[in-house]
Design a protein around this nucleic acid. Structure first.
Lengths: 220, 220
DNA sequence: TTTTATTAATCAATCGATTAATTAGTTTTG
DNA sequence: CAAAACTAATTAATCGATTGATTAATAAAA
């Protein structure tokens, strides 16, 4: 029984290792650009193991999704449902959690963003859209609630604010060659992400939204 | 002479037609996902013509770049070099020109963004990075100039502002399935783009930057 | 005639996937 | 307990299909 659990654990670890590598390679080269040979090679396993474990290349891709999605949503949803805080506090909490989560899993989100950017609708893009929309709605509801309550400016464009939050993050994380030049350090480096990028992005987004949401009336 | 010009015109039209189709297919399927057979097939020309005209698949890709970039940069560069206007006016002009240009050529920018989002460095990504940075630098210089002159807040984060401008636009244009749900109409529709999306995005970005760049001091 | 444009056929390379054979690990049996 | 039987994991080799690119032959234009 103990040995059996040990083996299953090792098997899970091995599958997880393959998915880790595949996730990175997909982010690096794109779905079509990433060959099963490169993925298996970098993971240090035989190419046939991908099909043995996940059935196909697309199976690997979907397995990456299943693994991340479950943990991705729970955190943000709890913030939206917390009735005890003000709308400003909710907004700050959302930004903190979102930036933290999304930069920790940056490879996954690069992969996600690239796939959803395909203009042709497929079953997969519909699925991804639904998943993303759940997280989008939380922020959308916070902004709408803040405006209705009078805490945020009535003249704000709540829908484009959402695009700004997700878009700013996506631009920095998804175009590392550009943003690294703009910002001045390697945004793909884990240490830079933790020590510099995360706190700076959190601070910036909060200030940006605060300026736009509370002072827009004064500028008319 | 007249016939010769006529022929060269037709040849140019044919090349342009191929590039139009290739640009759309690249945006739909990605660089790796778009085969030369599909491109030539949809363009209605023999596959070998792609190599005859452009040398290679990458040559087609770069030809699309050359065609767009030349006109794209001149407009923005002229704004950056216009010394007669204030920094606020420069910023507004830049946003107007950028939004107009980028939504008109949305296929090209989807293609561009997708390729540059590959984190692995290649000769191609280096080339794209260089091209994009020219346009980024113009906005960067405007923001930096405005801050130095005292027109913009000293506490602003000039580098992340750039990410916000390009990121907000990219999120709306590059994830049409998401943004169409958020905004409430089809962002890929040309009529919606001209009548609704462009003016709204211009107004929004100007207000957003104005609020952040001039009032941040008051919020400390 | 000479140059340019266009075609169909084909190239080697690489793709994702599968096979049969082999190893390792587990369970059953005498 | 140990040998045999069985299952799961892993490998090397190879499959047909598709990729980007090239060829030689032909058509059109100069």
């Amino acid at each position: 029984m103990r040995d059996k659990n040990k083996m299953e654990k090792e098997k899970t670890d091995k599958k997880d290792h393959i998915l880790d590598v595949a996730e990175r390679v997909f982010a690096e080269l794109g779905y079509d650009g990433a060959s099963t040979r490169v993925i298996s090679g970098e993971a240090g396993v035989n190419m046939a193991m991908l099909n043995y474990y996940f059935g196909s290349k697309e199976g690997v891709f979907l397995a990456i999704f299943d693994r991340r999605i479950s943990t991705f949503q729970s955190v943000l949803l709890s913030i939206g449902n917390d009735e005890s805080t003000s709308w400003w506090e909710k907004l700050d909490k959302y930004i903190d959690s979102y930036v933290e989560k999304v930069i920790n899993n940056n490879c996954f989100h690069v992969m996600l963003h690239r796939e959803i950017s395909k203009s042709k609708k497929t079953e997969l893009t519909d699925q991804i859209t639904g998943i993303i929309m759940k997280n989008v709605s939380v922020l959308q509801d916070i902004v709408d609630g803040g405006i209705k309550s009078g805490e945020f400016s009535k003249d704000a464009d709540p829908q484009f604010i959402v695009a700004t939050v997700f878009g700013t993050k996506s631009y920095i994380v998804n175009t590392p060659h550009i943003s690294s030049v703009i910002i001045g350090y390697d945004v793909m480096d884990a240490k830079n992400q933790d020590e510099k990028l995360k706190p700076r992005l959190k601070t910036y987004l909060k200030k940006l939204l605060k300026a736009y949401l509370q002072n827009e009336n004064d500028n008319k």
